[in-house]
Amino acid sequence: RKEMTAACTPRRRIINLTSVLSLQEEINEQGHEVLREMLHNHSFVGCVNPQWALAQHQTKLYLLNTTKLSEELFYQILIYDFANFGVLRLSEPAPLFDLAMLALDSPESGWTEEDGPKEGLAEYIVEFLKKKAEMLADYFSLEIDEEGNLIGLPLLIDNYVPPLEGLPIFILRLATEVNWDEEKECFESLSKECAMFYSIRKQYISEESTLSGQQSEVPGSIPNSWKWTVEHIVYKALRSHILPPKHFTEDGNILQLANLPDLYKVFERC
């Protein structure tokens, strides 16, 4: 597991931080080997919608929660590849102030007048994250320049770009939802926020969305749709870069829909 690298990086740093090793061990302890084997050997059937997909393993048909699986995938990559990410360069710098204002204007932020003026909160978020810029760049390849612009994001899987519609809320939550006081809790909560931002979430995906850094293989055609990215990038990574937690067998994120021999018997009677 320590050699797990989802995106190509030129050289690998050895990380011996106790906090990170502890988080890696927790993933191992909570892992479910049968689910790992199923995901490793599954045959992708198709997307139901951005949140759900169908896959077959041996004779069984499964309904998989793409949102939760991708979130767990990105969390584990962030923990196992800690401080070893490439950088996704933004085509132009994104001012943190503008991103924070967009987030505060969104109902998702939960902002009320009692929280104070949005401009003041946005300025605080910019200054707060600028103070964390060195650590964010060093460990997470999340790059913020001296003017308070976001200029780079971590490359977690080759050819995958997170849904940038979720970027404003991500920046807001970096400042408000991460435990910045304790090292282990900081790395864990920061990785979880980043994983949620990178995950496939239906509120940020339309039929026209593209999450891939590449064009489709047909010359002159439109960019790959999110469905292509889910199948050929995300579920491909799920084959080798995730140890599913045991609770996925109990919380409805992986559901067995049918045993195909039983279905064949039904059709034979028709």
Rank of each mutant, 00 (worst) to 15 (best):
Y75K: 05
L136D: 00
A100S: 09
A55L: 09
P245S: 13
V161G: 05
T9A: 10
L99N: 03
I27Q: 14
H42C: 09
L164G: 03
R239D: 11
L129I: 13
R269M: 15
E71S: 08
P95G: 06
L61M: 11
Y80H: 04
E127N: 02
L150N: 01
D251N: 06
Q256Y: 15
C194Q: 05
S199L: 01
D98H: 08
A103C: 14
P95I: 02
L88N: 06
A6G: 13
I200R: 03
V45D: 10
K265T: 09
L150D: 00
R36T: 12
G252V: 11
E146V: 08
G220L: 13
L88C: 09
E127P: 01
E250G: 11
E146Q: 05
G152M: 01
L88A: 07
Y235M: 08
K265D: 10
G152C: 10
A7V: 07
G110A: 02
W111M: 15
Q203F: 13
V234L: 03
C270L: 15
P10S: 11
G166L: 07
D251A: 06
M4A: 09
E182T: 06
I125G: 03
F248D: 12
T59L: 10
E71K: 07
S240R: 09
T59H: 09
N49H: 11
E114V: 10
P162H: 00
P163A: 06
E25A: 10
G220R: 08
I77Y: 15
L260E: 04
T176Y: 01
V126T: 05
R239C: 14
Q203S: 10
E119K: 02
G148P: 01
C47M: 06
K130F: 15
E113N: 12
S109N: 04
N159A: 06
E114C: 11
L167M: 04
I151P: 00
N179V: 07
R12E: 10
F140S: 02
L35T: 04
K2G: 12
V266G: 15
Y204T: 09
H40V: 11
H42A: 06
S106V: 03
A94S: 06
L167I: 07
E123P: 02
H247M: 11
V234P: 00
S206D: 08
A103K: 00
E217H: 09
L129Y: 14
E177D: 15
S199F: 01
L39F: 08
F248H: 06
H40G: 12
K132R: 03
N28S: 06
R11N: 11
K236W: 15
N159S: 08
K227L: 09
R36V: 12
N16L: 14
D251C: 05
E25Q: 11
L99G: 00
V234H: 02
D145P: 01
D145M: 01
V230W: 02
I125R: 01
F44A: 08
I151Q: 04
E72F: 11
H241F: 08
L211Y: 05
D145G: 04
L63S: 13
M196E: 05
E37Y: 14
Q214K: 09
I14F: 10
I125L: 15
W226A: 06
K118N: 15
M196T: 04
K132S: 05
L164A: 02
P95F: 05
K68G: 09
K227E: 09
Q203L: 13
L39G: 05
L155Y: 08
N259E: 06
E3F: 14
E37T: 11
C186N: 02
R89L: 14
S212E: 09
Q24N: 05
